[in-house]
Every structure is written in structure tokens, then in C-alpha cells.
Design a protein around this nucleic acid. Structure first.
Lengths: 146, 146
DNA sequence: CAAGATTGAACCCTCAATCTTA
DNA sequence: TAAGATTGAGGGTTCAATCTTG
């Protein structure tokens, strides 16, 4: 029958899950320890500051992060409570602008080096010696296209 | 300087994050849709039923899943509320036994085929044609060693 | 009306503090 | 006491229902 994974399939699945979980939590933990910013915090702030120059339409931000509206809304509420961003009525045509506060701008500037170090440490360095082209091609196939 | 990732590094990081997130959410969504079981639900039930024969020491279960005690305790509370498991004083030496209810046993039996289908669809099939040995080796390097 | 945004409920995870009991 | 377990608070995510407003 067809309703059970073979041991080899199961093995690859477990190895994949372990690696994905491992990289995710370690990078997040390093950045959090160094800067107090979570992964979503960092994502929001880098986009608002580097792409938007400090201000960005909320709907555009959600789109660029692949977030649903409600997810971003909940997250911005928490970030607003911590003083990292502010919400203002959008300049043109309705909607809301997300604005990075001084605290937010400083935090993301602080976090950038820690982010680079963490990504190198937990993703890039363990892969030294691997065929990165092939790895990248495999990873690309796994990303959702839709 | 050293505090910024190169475009190529950043690119691999984004591709990795996207793939990891994508596989995780799609497999979880398929199983949830087919059976109403979340990934942690499925993990708990398969271990209790297949390894423990329907009953397992809570501390042993936490250990085998790589869960902290509090994480498992919170999760079991939710599963108990949904009637999937019960908690009983352990047979020997103190502690607690987790017991799969009839509902729990039936649910995991139902879920097994859906799990196999989802893993094949979202991980195995996209990788057809890749060098699985090399991929597996790369993935193994990313798993936490500690 | 329809797009943009918010809210509430339920689920999930972590940390630190607190039982409980062999 | 120390191992096993629980609890509460706070952050994170999803879904569906509900504003709000151009």
C-alpha cells in the first residue's frame, strides 16, 4: 500500500524538520539576545527603514512580507506598544502609514550586525564545502509558487 | 566591513527561509484540513500509540519529542480538553502517564495516510531529480549539534 | 460597494516561578 | 532535596467576523 512513508522517506523528513527548526530558532534566539528584536520585528523595521525610507503603507508592507493583514495588524499593535513604530493616517488615498520611531530606527541599526553574524553562523558556515548551487536549486523547488 | 551580508548571502538566506516556512505550513495545513490534528497533536499521538502502545510516561514523551516540560504540559492540557488524551498517575515511581483515548487512537490512524501524502507532496516530490544524498548531507549539517 | 484595517477566539511556544511528592 | 509537573504572563499565528471609509 501507499499510506506509509518508507524508512528512507521518513528519515529525510525528520532531518529536514530538525534542520529547519534548528536554524530558525537559533538565528531568532541570537538576534533576540543581542538586540531584543524578534524576527518579525526585524523584518518590519528593515523594510520600513530601508525600502520605505522610514515610512510605508501598511498594506504594501504586508504584501512585501507575505503577511496577511490581520497578522501584521496584531504585530504592529505589539510593536507600537513597545515604541518601535507609530501608525498614522496615510498621506494619499486612505489606509494607514507605518512610521519607524527613533527607537525603531536605532534598534534596527543595532541589529544589523547581529543578524549578519547569526545568519553566517547558523546557515552559511555549516554549509561550507557543500555545492551551494545545487543546494540553492533544491531549496528553490520547495518554496511555494502560488 | 563585515556587518552586512552580501547580496548572494542574503539571497540564499531568503530562499532558505521561504522554503522552510513554506514546507512547514503546507504540510501542517494539509494534515489539519484532512484530520483536524495539528503537527504537535500528531507527534504526541504517534509516539504514545506506536512507541508506548497507548500509554507513556509524560517525562519520557517530552524527552523523545525534544519538548520542554512546560511546553508539553500546556499542549496536553489542550489535547485533554479536546478528548484526545487523558492523564493518569503513573504506574511506577511517581509522575504522570499520558494515555491515548479511543478518539485519539482513531484520529491518529485516520491521519497517517494524510501525513504520508502531505510529506510526499510538499517535500519529496519537489525534490525529484535532485541529488538527494548531497541534499541530505547539507541538511544534516544545519541541524543543531548540542 | 469594496479595499484596508481591526478584533476576538483558539491555538502554539518560552521563560520563570511555583507546586508536589518520592 | 530534587525530579516531575503545573501555572501565568507575554509574544506569535490563523481564521472568521466586523468595522471604516474612499
Amino acid at each position: 500500500v501507499d499510506d506509509r512513508l518508507t524508512p528512507a522517506e521518513l528519515d529525510l523528513w525528520h532531518a529536514w524538520k530538525l534542520a529547519a527548526e534548528s536554524v530558525r530558532t537559533q538565528v531568532a534566539a541570537d538576534i533576540m539576545a543581542a538586540t531584543g528584536l524578534s524576527d518579525p520585528d526585524f523584518g518590519v523595521l528593515t523594510r520600513v527603514v530601508e525600502v520605505g525610507g522610514g515610512r510605508m503603507r501598511q498594506s504594501e508592507l504586508a504584501e512585501s512580507m507575505g503577511y496577511h493583514r490581520s497578522r501584521l495588524s496584531h504585530h504592529l499593535t505589539r510593536m507600537e506598544d513597545r515604541g518601535l513604530v507609530a501608525r498614522e493616517p496615510a498621506a494619499a488615498g486612505g489606509g494607514v502609514d507605518v512610521v519607524a520611531t527613533e527607537i525603531g530606527v536605532a534598534a534596527v541599526a543595532d541589529a544589523r550586525p547581529a543578524h549578519a553574524v547569526a545568519v553566517r553562523r547558523h546557515l552559511l558556515e555549516p554549509l561550507v564545502g557543500c555545492d551551494l548551487g545545487a543546494f540553492r536549486a533544491a531549496v528553490d523547488r520547495l518554496a511555494v509558487r502560488a
